[in-house]
Each structure stands twice: as C-alpha cells, then as structure tokens.
C-alpha cells in the first residue's frame, strides 16, 4: 500500500493510455524545462523562506514544541525538492498530437490525464504569452469548447511559431467543414 508512490516512475510508460494512431506524437519545446525551473524555483524558495520565518516568529510569540521547527524545515525542503524534480518530470510526461479531427494531450506525473478535444468542437482558440514566457520565447495554446466548467484546455510550452502553426491548422480544419 505504501508502495504506490514508487510505482508510477518505473511502469509509467505502459500505464499511459495508448497513443492515437492517426497523428504523430509531439513533445513540448525543450526550453520549457528551463522556464518551469525558473518560475517553480522562485516560487518554491519564497514559500520555503515563508515557512521558516513564520515558524520562527510563531515560536517567539507562543510556546510551540521543539519539533515544530523541524516540521517547518521539512516542509521547506520538500517544496524546494519538488520544484527541482517537477519540471523535468512534467516535461518527460507531456505528449500531444493534433490532426484535423482531434487534439490529444497526455500529461501528469502522479495524476495522469489523457484528453481528447474534437477540433470542430472548438469555439475559439487563443495563444497566450506571459512576460516570463516571452523571455523564454514560449507560448501557451488555449482551446475553448462550449460550456462553463473546465471548458478551457491549455497546451503549454510551445514556441510562438509552433503555436501559430497549430492555430492555423485548427482554423483550416474547421474552415473546410464550414463550407
């Protein structure tokens, strides 16, 4: 029972749902790992610092058992370690493919997700680029379907050119069917 945390990594590849036969699988841009490291590490260090500082100041104010300090340090270290592991792992698990019928996305480390969005069901498509994303020359492709909840599907870590090609491909596939 305690072992299921170790299970994912070795058997990860055969656990994944089978790839689509029609379109060839693609991976994200390699430099998305660098982008994720940059953002995750900054956030993780800030959080770790916060844990330690808060536990210190709490100990000054009220009486806490001695081990509360270790808990805070443990949390801080866990956050930083996960920020070191997650980007590379996430990159390794991300696959997507697109043809004129379907956009497929597979990703996730512990929680694995396999999504299929029919191209003709897309209401509109966006390319979003945050300031830090722009520094790394990356873009996120966002697809919207009808509905309210969970109707936006995000495909991160593409180069601007690839995102635009994806968008144009989707629009072309739709345009043909509109006629």
């Amino acid at each position: 029972m305690d072992s299921h945390d170790e299970v994912p990594q070795p058997t990860a590849d055969d656990e994944r749902p089978a790839p689509v036969a029609v379109a060839s699988e693609q991976r994200l841009e390699r430099r998305v790992v660098a982008y994720w490291y940059a953002t995750h590490l900054v956030r993780a260090l800030a959080m770790a610092a916060m844990f330690v500082v808060v536990s210190r100041s709490l100990r000054a104010e009220i009486e806490l058992p001695a081990w509360s300090e270790y808990v805070a340090w443990g949390l801080a270290i866990a956050v930083v370690v996960s920020a070191l592991v997650v980007p590379a792992w996430a990159y390794a698990t991300w696959r997507f493919s697109v043809d004129d019928r379907l956009l497929s996305m597979r990703f996730g480390m512990l929680f694995v997700e396999d999504r299929r969005v029919p191209v003709p069901r897309m209401q509109h498509v966006d390319i979003s680029r945050g300031p830090i994303e722009r520094l790394f020359g990356l873009a996120t492709f966002v697809v919207f379907t009808a509905g309210n909840e969970g109707s936006a599907f995000r495909l991160p870590g593409l180069s601007q050119a690839r995102a635009e090609a994806l968008r144009d491909g989707v629009l072309r596939a739709r345009g043909r069917d509109v006629v």
Binding site: H4, P8, G108, F111, V117
Partner: peptide, 15 residues
C-alpha cells in the same frame, strides 16, 4: 453532444 473527453488516473488508480 460531447464537447471533449478525458481519462484521468490518480496514483492509487494507477497502482
């Protein structure tokens, strides 16, 4: 009427 489909697995489900 289906707009999109997705398969999801948590760690326990994968085990």
């Amino acid at each position: 009427k289906v707009q999109a489909v997705s398969v999801h697995q948590g760690p326990l489900q994968r085990a």
